[in-house]
Design a protein around this nucleic acid. Structure first.
Length: 953
RNA sequence: GCGGGGGCGCCCGAGCCUGGUCAAAGGGGCGGGACUUAGGAUCCCGUGGCCGUAGGGCCGUCCCGGGUUCAAAUCCCGGCCCCCGCACCA
């Protein structure tokens, strides 16, 4: 940093004063807040800036309230992205180079080093830190680390050993998207095509070939793949595509007939897969196969709709429930030439009738046929079939009931699993994975397959006891906004075992199986605890698990650990104390797309590893960032770099904009126009502060407008404080910044004075310091000439500003009076310079209002008033007015008698204001309308909160 | 499919949970005015329609349709549309 910018100068002062270095202090209550550490693979943009601004505003606010606040930062380096980026830069990938050189502005000589992934991370981590400092984030940088530091790795090692001891880590197999050429699993960013494809599980159904015509097919199976194994009872035949060359594949000793594409997939999913021959689809036609569950003999028939790339290229036909099968069957019945072409006897299909296995409300016996008819589907190549299939699939799954023997009355969803299990048990079924969409192509140009990874390590999130603890922890936590709680609950429910380690990327090896690296979402679940001691173990290198067991759990003997590590036993004790002091974490902040993984993992791991008194207390979830209404995305170049925004506007404009454009959990939209609006307002704010201090005026209790200003300001302090407690940063600063600016404007219009009392200015700076620390700090020192840092100047006290509801109401009356007068002026076409008469309401109305505010009923008030003879004469009128007054919205605690006095005072003091704001040349206030001049109907319009007016002339 | 969140005035966006005081906060844009040599600076006024020589009145408004209610942007039912997560990716 060059040091000539305001924010850099101030940062230096703050840093030298150690303002943000938080150490345990038993006299102060701790607040510990963390936000997801960045993965520094690119430049920081204004979206990131908001992420870190929110905790910073809160941290600064809490510090001013006297709390000891810890707000640390680190860098997440675990994983594969930078490895991929480095590889792409090495290969000279233009898109990547363009992104880094042109968008992120990485200098050429630096870019050359980016072939090393660690260098990329290092470069951007530095850039992040620099930008974060320029933004003024009140981070305790002593605790900075990266997730590949040896000390952090030791911490992860400890965590995983612990989890394994708790029985929460397990081994299993797992399907992944895989490139056979690169011999690696592939992530989204490694794909040319098919990012949207998901991995789906299909059930394989094996149909034994009866009476094989040749030896190769002896005892072989036609293997069909299906999403709907329960329909096997309705199978009438098997479809193959005549012009496909199927392969005969030996799978674990069995012979399967499948398409070449399917074999390619199976090779990565099964043991011992070997091609032993091929067979034309045409050759299979006319053969018979056995239904694995019913033993029935089914003919093999030709179908055009089959795509050999999907599933196995072999399909069993269930015309009752599958529209495609029904269409294909009808095609053959209608036009036997296709059968004849392959030398099949057309009579073979004549006898085939659909067999119902599922009953669905809203459909007849054969739902597939119903849909064909309804949608007017012509043949098996009709594109409408896709929708038809989906409709039947959905309705049968949700509403269908099984009709076959042994499964009667069973819902389809349940039957599906039961049939699958039965098939597998009998050795006549199996499972295969495939993509939902094809093709899926790796960057290298190779088509991907689904591979089953053996020996995959999992975190057992499916464990019911663990889930239960997670639920309990969640329940004890505060969630902001509360709406996302349902999301968390739901995630805990469906979360299944998580593959927590990978073969590639940066990170920490699994302690017991070091070929595996703990993947990023799994090594970032409890690192908040690590922050508490990060600065104390920095530079110590690898550390034994026992150290962490002692520091975090109080287990073991510090002396022994000291011997093993060479650490000072007292230092170990201090670590323990520090952790005890800061934990539990008060707030965890992260983006909303991390609710379903990181934030939930955070909950799970804390629940498993820490005792209840160390469970985190709250989560704040962020919205996303938009740029001029479009989604921000670095890869599309649709971002505003933070460094550029800072150069152009400075940190306080950026901060105030980000803080007030949306609440943290809402999406915010960076619009140039708005940002510039913020800039103008800030300039105005600075002017007001300078003006006010120049005047050097203190406030005067005798002046009703001063009383009004103080009372209104009090409310703003209260509201802003309350809002900040709940992370409603936008609300807080709409009030504390724009709201006060508005007060100031109104105040100077009403009084004709520039600026406001200096004491209020000082507290205004305090209120705004969390959001615009630089400008406020400077004004505090240079203009108010105060000593010390604002950060340590305390939070404003509402009690310093006496509440005065009567004056507030009276000023409201005055202001609406101006509006009314203007309105009337317009209607009657008044000319400049007239005399404005203002009539207060007559005495009896005030008495009535007083009784009403005391809570007395209509009848009660009336009978009281009717004791007065002169009022009795106009009883109807009085009743009407009393009703009117009863519906008036008067603050409860208003002292009516005082209000009346204050109102006279305000109107008289406000005469000048009235002449400025209206065309009136002169204002006469009549406190007693009875003997005042003017038409009676004008005077009669007077009410306590709406004086009568008469424009004379 | 599963789950979550929405649809408001020219635009962004409060309010809806705890119905009325909501023509509906606050910005922005636009129109007018003040200040001024000038203004992209600042301040004020206006911004659904019609009417009014007294601070007002009438009509139509918060995706569409229906309902509850004396009363609905706000509650209930149905429909249409949109956005976001869903796993090995940080």
């Amino acid at each position: 940093m060059s040091g000539d910018r305001r924010e850099e100068r101030l940062w230096k002062e703050w840093e030298e004063a150690g303002l943000f270095e938080a150490d345990p202090d038993e006299d102060k209550e701790p607040v510990f807040i963390t936000v997801a550490y960045p993965y520094p693979s690119g430049s920081m943009h204004v979206g990131h800036a908001r992420t870190y601004l929110v905790p910073d505003v809160y941290a600064r606010f809490k510090r001013m309230q006297g709390y000891n606040v810890l707000f640390p930062m680190a860098f997440h380096v675990t994983g594969t992205p930078v490895v991929g980026i480095a590889a792409r830069i090495r290969e000279g990938d233009e898109e990547t180079i363009k992104l880094y050189r042109d968008l992120y502005g990485v200098p050429e000589e630096e870019l050359e080093k980016f072939t090393d992934p660690e260098r990329i991370v290092e470069y951007f981590a530095n850039e992040y830190e620099e930008n974060m400092k320029r933004m003024g984030y009140s981070i305790d940088w002593r605790r900075k680390f990266t997730t590949v530091d040896p000390e952090y790795r030791s911490f992860i090692t400890w965590q995983y050993l612990r989890l394994r001891d708790l029985g929460l880590v397990d081994k299993g197999e797992h399907p992944v998207r895989y490139c056979p050429k690169c011999e690696n699993p592939v992530g989204d960013h490694d794909l040319l095509e098919g990012e949207d494809a998901t991995i789906e599980e299909l059930t394989l159904v094996k149909f034994r070939i009866a009476e094989a015509p040749e030896e190769e097919l002896e005892d072989a199976f036609l293997v069909a793949a299906t999403f709907r194994p329960e329909t096997i009872y309705g199978a009438t035949n098997v479809w193959v595509k005549p012009d496909v060359e199927y392969e005969i594949v030996e799978v674990d000793g069995e012979r399967w007939v499948v398409s070449p594409e399917a074999r390619r997939n199976l090779e990565h999913q099964k043991e011992n897969v070997e091609v032993v021959g091929t067979v034309e689809g045409e050759e299979l036609l006319g053969l018979h196969v056995e239904n694995p569950l019913t033993g029935e003999k089914l003919p093999v028939l030709p179908a055009r709709f089959i795509d050999p790339a999907f599933g196995t290229g072999i399909v069993y036909s269930v015309p009752a429930h599958a529209p495609v099968d029904a269409a294909a069957l009808e095609d053959l019945k209608r036009d036997p030439s296709e059968l004849e072409r392959y030398g099949l006897d057309p009579s073979i299909v004549r006898g085939i009738e659909p067999v119902q296995v599922i009953e669905v409300e809203g459909y007849g016996e054969f739902p597939a046929y119903d849909v064909l008819e309804e949608m007017g589907i012509e043949d098996q190549e009709d594109p409408k079939l896709e929708e038809a299939t989906q409709r039947v699939y959905r309705d049968e799954l949700h509403k269908g009931i099984m009709k076959v023997e042994g499964l009667e009355g069973c819902p389809v969803a349940e039957a599906r699993d039961r049939v699958k299990e039965e098939l597998i048990e009998k050795g006549l079924g199996d499972v295969m994975y495939d993509f939902s969409e094809k093709p899926v192509v790796c960057r290298c140009g190779t088509e991907c397959v689904v591979k089953i990874i053996e020996d995959q390590w999992f975190l057992k999130y499916s464990d019911e006891d663990w889930k239960e603890k997670a639920r309990e922890l969640l329940e004890s936590m505060e969630i902001i906004p509360e709406e996302v709680r349902a999301n968390f609950e739901d995630t805990i429910e469906w979360l299944d075992d998580w593959a927590c380690a990978r073969r590639v990327g940066l990170g920490t090896p699994l302690p017991w199986d070091p070929d595996w690296i703990v993947e990023p979402l799994s090594d970032s679940t409890i690192y908040m605890a690590y922050y508490t001691i990060a600065h104390r173990i920095k530079g110590e290198g690898e550390l034994p698990p026992e150290l962490f067991s002692y520091v975090f759990l109080g287990e073991g003997d510090p002396e022994e650990i000291a011997d093993r590590t060479g650490l000072d036993p007292e230092e170990i004790e201090r670590m323990r104390e520090e952790f005890e002091y800061w934990y539990p974490l008060d707030w965890r902040l992260s983006a909303k797309d991390l609710v379903t993984n990181h934030l939930t993992f955070f909950v799970f791991h804390h629940a498993a590893l820490f005792p209840r008194d160390k469970w985190p207390k709250g989560i704040v979830v962020f919205g996303m960032g938009l740029l001029e209404g479009e989604k921000m995305s670095s890869s599309k170049g649709n971002v505003v770099l933070l460094s550029e925004a800072l150069d152009e506007y400075g940190p306080d404009v950026v901060r105030l904009f980000l803080a007030t454009s949306a609440e943290p959990w809402q999406d915010f939209d960076w619009r140039r126009e708005y940002v510039e609006g913020v800039e103008r307002h800030l300039r105005r704010f600075e002017e007001v502060v300078r003006e006010s201090v120049e005047r050097g005026r203190d406030w005067d209790e005798e002046d009703p407008f001063d009383r009004w200003l103080m009372s209104s300001f009090r409310k703003i302090i209260e509201e802003a404080t309350e809002a900040l407690e709940g992370f409603e940063i936008r609300r807080a600063y709409n009030e504390a910044f724009y709201g006060v600016l508005k007060l100031v404007r109104a105040y100077s219009r009403m009084t004709g004075r520039d600026g406001v009392p200096e004491r209020l200015v000082a507290d205004w700076l305090r209120l705004l310091h969390p959001v615009i620390p630089h400008l406020t700090e400077e004004l505090w020192k240079d203009v108010l000439e105060r000593e010390g840092f604002l950060q340590e100047a305390g939070w404003p006290e509402p009690e310093d500003y006496p509440e005065d509801v009567e004056t507030e109401v009276a000023v409201d009356v005055l202001r609406s009076l101006v509006e009314d007068v203007r309105d009337v002026e317009k209607v009657i076409g008044a000319e400049e310079g007239y005399t404005l008469h203002v009539y207060l309401a007559p005495d009896w109305q005030w008495r009535a209002l007083e009784m009403i505010t005391e809570g007395r009923e209509f009848g009660d008030v009336m009978s009281e008033l009717m004791k007065d003879e002169s009022l009795r004469e106009m009883g109807d009128e009085v009743a009407k007015v009393v009703r009117e007054l009863m519906s008036e919205d008067v603050p409860e605690d208003v002292d009516v008698e005082r209000l009346r006095e204050v109102l006279v005072e305000v109107l008289e003091e406000g005469s000048r204001y009235l002449t400025v704001e209206t065309k009136a040349g002169d204002v006469v206030v009549h406190a007693n309308p009875e003997d005042a001049p003017g038409p009676e109907d004008r005077k009669a319009g007077a009410r306590p909160l709406r004086p009568g007016i008469w424009i004379e002339g």
